[in-house]
Design a protein around this nucleic acid. Structure first.
Lengths: 171, 171
DNA sequence: AATTACATGTAATCCGTTACATGATTGA
DNA sequence: TCAATCATGTAACGGATTACATGTAATT
């Protein structure tokens, strides 16, 4: 998913500023499956505006930069529809954890223990965070996406609890 | 995980050529959680060699470029250990599918049906592929990593089967 | 007193993919 | 006969992060 489609899609769900878009992909329900920084969001928003796919109204604020609230235009909606008509590309699951496990076995087997233990903790944290978001999510599809994430994380967590004995050092 | 550590780690598991490393990350057990192209692998291998972290012996072949078989040096092993001592960064799970679901609801709800159906098919394919690899994997940690992947994919699959009714259009 | 949140934006830099270049062998 | 496999490597290009630049207000 390129940054342009991401912005278009988020704006299809409601008007937003660049700052808010960044917050959504960094902390909100989107954080589970996407990411983006100011350095890519702001330029994308500017370009999409000149292309007429989104438009922006400015809100003056005292002692702060004007708030630029973007909204999707009809052309933008059409462009988004085109993007969504294409088949989504397969997920990318980059995991330093899994790579570390394999490599650690070769060079530092005693490290595997703490790797797995930390991972169990981090899955637990992720599950809790997702459940919190789930409780505050209103849209059925939003809930569905969050539930999908929770199930996946839970499966990983359960697997590690049940199978860590297969690789951790016996005491 | 940067490309350097990836190469170092793979070479820690056994000597390999650039071609073989590429095959591992594109098709082998590594494909589940990493990726890299020739354009990044070959230059990385060259650089690691000049730095003394790996070394290469050349094998002549008739009518083919010499096979360059790389192996980890002591310095390389130490560098890898240093990398692995650091906590692995959180996984990156980029999913166009999940984003498409959310956005499709806003602009083309009738698309959700086929999106989910295709996804179910692709999870099934992934699970089968992982199970094949699992059957051929010898190392316990390798099996563990593959089993982890299978469990996660299976959970996603099961979730979609059980919950698609929540978002697909009723006929 | 210090950090976080708010709010926008640019420039340097890094990193990696895609496409190109070359060419024989094997299997369908 | 056509595609895939084997085998290495470079150059152009694109995309995104990081760091920089600026400044107030609220919270801890």
């Amino acid at each position: 998913m390129d940054i342009r489609t991401l912005c278009l899609g988020i704006l299809a769900l409601g008007d937003a500023t660049g700052y808010e878009i960044k917050k959504m992909v960094a902390e909100g329900s989107f954080s589970f499956f996407s990411e983006a920084s100011y350095g890519s969001i702001y330029p994308a928003l500017t370009k999409l505006t000149t292309e007429g796919l989104i438009e922006c109204r400015q809100e003056s604020q005292s002692n702060r930069p004007d708030k630029k609230i973007y909204s999707l235009t009809e052309a933008g909606r059409a462009a988004l529809e085109d993007s969504l008509a294409k088949d989504p590309r397969p997920d990318k699951n980059r995991s330093e954890f899994l790579a570390s496990l394999l490599f650690a076995e070769a060079v530092a087997p005693e490290r595997i223990n703490s790797l797995v233990q930390d991972r169990i903790t981090s899955h637990k944290r992720q599950i809790d965070a997702l459940k919190l978001m789930r409780a505050e999510e209103d849209s059925p599809v939003g809930q569905f996406v969050l539930d999908y994430g929770i199930q996946v994380q839970q499966a990983a967590y359960d697997f590690l609890i049940a199978n860590k004995g297969r690789i951790v050092t016996k005491l």
